[in-house]
């Protein structure tokens, strides 16, 4: 009975998953990255950003780290209800029961292959359950917006802001 109650509570909680997005302030000081779900994100980022990340290991690692920082900063400027929703999603994905609820499997994401992770994302993306779709969309927007917010990642786009005058920031 206790477990059942917990499951229901978790489901009700996830129904509130909203997930807006992104964006970060350039000032990155003071962000405690230990609380930023780095392990979880280190598994998901290569899947979301496949094809966008540099192929050479050094720059690739640099881009992944930069995106982690950008995500932490994006989260920090979101309204509190959206922060809570994202934290809730991360929390579920890091917990066994949450993982089972959201992905149908107890296997930690770290131990899943890229194709299994894609399968998971596709199941959310095409789900008839709105909370899974919003979980997918929230994560996707957070990652994409944070990655492309960084000028370091614009090279493939051939995009650069104009320099209007000397001293442009």
């Amino acid at each position: 009975m206790e477990r059942r109650t917990f499951l229901l509570a978790a489901l009700t909680g996830t129904a509130a998953l909203a997930l807006g997005s992104y964006l970060y302030l350039p000032e990155l000081e003071g962000i405690d990255t230990d609380q930023d779900h780095r392990v979880l994100l280190s598994v998901l980022l290569p899947v979301f950003l496949d094809g966008a990340l540099p192929e050479v290991e050094g720059p690739r690692l640099q881009a992944l780290n930069r995106t982690q920082e950008a995500i932490a900063a994006s989260m920090a400027v979101l309204p509190s209800h959206q922060q809570q929703e994202l934290q809730h999603l991360f929390g579920l994905l890091e917990a066994q029961l949450g993982l089972l609820l959201l992905t149908g499997s107890l296997t930690p994401l770290m131990l899943r292959s890229p194709s299994e992770l894609i399968q998971m994302l596709e199941r959310w993306r095409t789900s008839y359950v709105d909370l899974l779709v919003t979980a997918y969309q929230g994560l996707r927007e957070l990652v994409m917006a944070s990655f492309y917010a960084c000028p370091e990642h614009w090279a493939r786009l051939h995009y650069a802001k104009p320099r209007l005058f000397d001293g442009a920031q």
């Binding site: 997005s21 992104y22 964006l23 899947v47 979301f48 950003l49 496949d50 094809g51 966008a52 894609i118 994302l121 996707r140 927007e141 990652v143 994409m144 917006a145 990655f147 492309y148 917010a149 614009w154 493939r156 786009l157 995009y159």
Partner: peptide
């Protein structure tokens, strides 16, 4: 602009990167 387009288009991985 990058953030607007990256977040309002669909998908992820190689199709999105292309």
């Amino acid at each position: 602009h990058p953030v607007l387009i990256a977040s309002k288009t669909l998908g992820y991985g190689s199709s999105h990167a292309e």
